[in-house]
Design a protein around this nucleic acid. Structure first.
Ligand SMILES: NC(=O)c1ccc[n+]([C@@H]2O[C@H](COP(=O)([O-])OP(=O)(O)OC[C@H]3O[C@@H](n4cnc5c(N)ncnc54)[C@H](O)[C@@H]3O)[C@@H](O)[C@H]2O)c1
Ligand SMILES: NC(=O)c1ccc[n+]([C@@H]2O[C@H](COP(=O)([O-])OP(=O)(O)OC[C@H]3O[C@@H](n4cnc5c(N)ncnc54)[C@H](O)[C@@H]3O)[C@@H](O)[C@H]2O)c1
Lengths: 205, 205
DNA sequence: TTCACGCTGTTATTAATATAACAGCGTGAA
DNA sequence: TTCACGCTGTTATATTAATAACAGCGTGAA
């Protein structure tokens, strides 16, 4: 079963939307309704949902609770996945504060920094460790995802340490392309480029 | 002249890389070198550069200074573009602190919030205004790009106010899809979905 | 002088992705 | 009972983007 990145992004978005609807006690939804909220087309929605093997009914559309479950079965790990944030600066701290507890199946288990002021402190409920302890802590806590929030100059080096410690995927907020082995999944989220991009397209209309 | 989003993203990335090289006094670069740093292929690099009408030489490759200029001519506004950040919370403040002064042609001219504690204060050098003053301040300062950092529940409403005030593009960090007129350019950067996505693909390898 | 080399610019091909089209089905009105 | 409707699931088409192929050119070694 092959699934593309965009596919997954949309499925995760659908789930978010569906969870919102569920809490308003909506029970069923048609592809065209979900498409409108998710800003896509009904065909795309049906296709995405088909790709995870869930089927709706032609009368009531999709059962929201069941569909949420199906997306979860497809996208989530069986057990809770553990995540670390490296770099407890402005961005890192904002993320910890925001993230913790939002997704049942994802859990921030540790923070790493190299600033002695931050090491061994608890930040928004999560313990901050020194980079020297990385391998030990990551392996002991079975962490396999890292969010990289260190300065650009340190990013490559820290990424290599993370991989050595056993990390499988990196969400990189540092504005550099990392050069890493191909079995590591890397998603770059360059916020500066994003602003430049919006600035460009805002003039094209 | 038609150009795709990915095209622009790569060009902006090339520029970032090239600026770094320029400051190390590198003068020329071949497509395969740039491709390696930008994590793409030489063909893609040549094609992207072709799309903005710049030409290198088959002997020395691309002249870095000239290429930076060409990308700038293509992507940047003639005058400095003004940007606003709405929502001076954890994320908004981190962005202000980080962003200011990093790009010559982009300038954060104002912040908006609805918290009386923040209104009329200067945050990292930028004045924070109340939402009521939005239209006036945005028009007076000729701001046309907004970065949206308000809670999800407020995002749609704030986005509509921004558009009324004359904003042309929105970089949206709130985890909701905005429903807006099609002439407004919207880029969604959902950080929670990004983590979920990395968590998924980190298991697929 | 000649020729092989390695680069760019461009065209051709392939792959990925989105869009459209339509068959099948259960429902409910006539 | 029959038939039109509106939905899903699936197949077909179109569009877009990435990859590969190659012609043209200046260079430098033979
Ligand atoms: N703040 C933002 O809004 C923002 C926006 C876009 C991109 N970024 C990027 O995100 C990253 C972090 O930004 P920030 O504003 O939080 O920076 P920051 O300076 O506030 O924080 C960086 C943190 O990383 C730690 N650090 C530095 N070197 C380290 C190392 N080798 N190992 C471990 N920890 C190390 C520092 O001690 C500090 O706590 C940077 O790469 C920045 O370019 C930030
Ligand atoms: N902090 C993060 O790392 C993070 C990560 C992912 C997404 N986000 C998203 O970014 C947004 C902001 O996150 P945050 O952590 O900075 O939240 P926050 O609560 O710290 O800040 C929100 C700010 O928006 C202001 N605000 C609220 N309603 C407003 C309104 N109607 N008009 C103007 N201002 C208003 C508040 O006064 C506050 O200053 C949220 O939508 C959040 O989901 C944040």
């Amino acid at each position: 079963m092959k699934i593309s990145e965009k596919n997954i992004e949309r499925l995760l978005l659908y789930r978010r939307i569906l969870c919102g609807l569920r809490s308003e006690n909506v029970e069923n939804i048609y592809s065209h309704q979900l498409a409108r909220i998710a800003d896509t087309t009904p065909e795309q929605v049906r296709r995405d949902i088909m790709s995870i093997g869930y089927s709706g009914s032609s009368v009531k559309g999709y059962n929201i609770i069941r569909l949420i479950e199906s997306i979860g079965e497809f996208t989530d790990a069986r057990e809770t996945q553990r995540v670390t944030i490296v770099g407890a600066g402005n961005l890192g701290r904002a993320l910890i504060d925001y993230f913790q507890g939002r997704r049942r199946k994802l859990f921030i288990a540790a923070i790493f920094d190299n600033d002695p002021q931050k090491i061994d402190r608890v930040i928004h409920g999560v313990r901050c460790y020194s980079v020297e302890q990385m391998k030990e802590v990551i392996q002991k806590n079975n962490i396999d995802v890292a969010i990289l929030c260190v300065p650009a100059a340190a990013a490559q080096q820290v990424a290599e340490l993370l991989i050595e410690a056993g990390i499988k995927g990196i969400l990189n907020y540092a504005p550099v392309k990392l050069s890493l082995p191909s079995h590591i999944y890397v998603e770059n989220r360059d916020m500066l480029l994003a602003v430049e991009k919006v600035a460009f397209f805002s003039r094209q209309h």
